[in-house]
Structure formats: structure tokens, C-alpha cells
């Protein structure tokens, strides 16, 4: 298993596609933004802007060509998602199976706040219990400490 991964990263050899089409400055900015948001599937912790894997090269070319052909960002993303799944997007869409992914941090924040609130409000509620006769209790404690002082 391990050596075919190594082979993947090393072995994707040699072949490169045609030169990317020339993009004007507005297109160039879109191109940069897009390739920084798309994941390279060969070396998964890199986007296709950073990765030197030949697949990333091919995908950069594909993106450049689609921009040149007048496709919108959404169309280009849809094109890649249809082939590689939501995993190619570094910002996955908000849908039922990503609710936990997007909502998880907020859920944890709320849980933490609730827990903190309960701990701190519990501490503050050290007010005298009304079911206890405070005067009698006071007298009792006073008596005990008097006795202790005498002995």
C-alpha cells in the first residue's frame, strides 16, 4: 500500500499538456482564486496551485481553458465536483452530510458556553437555604465555637 502511494507521488512522470491559454488580468485573478480553492487529489493536503503533481498541472490547465472559454466559476467547480466529488473543494458546500462539519464548531461553542454558565451560576447561588432556621443555626454554631474556645 505504502509504496504505491510513493509511486504515485514520484511516478507520475514526464508528460505535460499544451501550454495554458493566455488570460487577461481579470481572468488571471479568477484563475488564481479558483486553483487555490481546489484540492489536488494526488497530494491531498495541497491545492492545485501549490501541487507539482502532474494531475494538478492538468487540472490547472483545464481550469485555465474553461475560464478562457467563458465558463463561470460555478460551472468550473461543478465540472470538477461531478468528477472528483465535493472533496476537491477546500470549501465544501453546506448540505445534509456536511452540517456537522460546518455546524460542529458552533455546536461546541454553545455547549461550552452552556457548561460554563452552569458552573458559574452554580457558584453564585450560595445564598442561605430558606428551609433552615437561620437564627437557630447561628446560635448552634455560636455555642459550638464558644465551647471550643473554653476547652
Amino acid at each position: 500500500m505504502r509504496y504505491w502511494i510513493a509511486a504515485l507521488c514520484l511516478g507520475f512522470g514526464g508528460l505535460t499538456l499544451a501550454e495554458p491559454p493566455a488570460l487577461h488580468s481579470g481572468q488571471e485573478a479568477r484563475y488564481q482564486a479558483l486553483i487555490e480553492e481546489l484540492r489536488c487529489l494526488v497530494c491531498q493536503n495541497q491545492n492545485i496551485a501549490e501541487s507539482n503533481a502532474p494531475l494538478a498541472e492538468d487540472l490547472r490547465l483545464q481550469v485555465a481553458e474553461m475560464i478562457n472559454a467563458g465558463r463561470s466559476d460555478a460551472e468550473i467547480k461543478d465540472y470538477l465536483v461531478a468528477r472528483y466529488g465535493d472533496f476537491v473543494l477546500y470549501r465544501p458546500p453546506f448540505k445534509p452530510n456536511t452540517w456537522l462539519l460546518w455546524g460542529g464548531p458552533f455546536l461546541l461553542l454553545v455547549l461550552g458556553l452552556v457548561t460554563a454558565f452552569r458552573i458559574f451560576s452554580g457558584r453564585r447561588s450560595e445564598t442561605p437555604d430558606e428551609s433552615v432556621d437561620q437564627a437557630a443555626l447561628h446560635k448552634l454554631l455560636q455555642g459550638q465555637s464558644d465551647q471550643r474556645n473554653k476547652s
Binding site: L8, L15, A18, L41, P54, L55, D58, R83, Y84, G85
Partner: peptide
Amino acid sequence: DADGRVGIDWGVYGV
């Protein structure tokens, strides 16, 4: 598939 374009259509990323 010399230039790998059909590979992209098939979502190939690790031969």
C-alpha cells in the same frame, strides 16, 4: 488517453 483528459472525465487521480 495520451493527454489524460478522458482520465479527468473519469475522475482518475491515482493509477
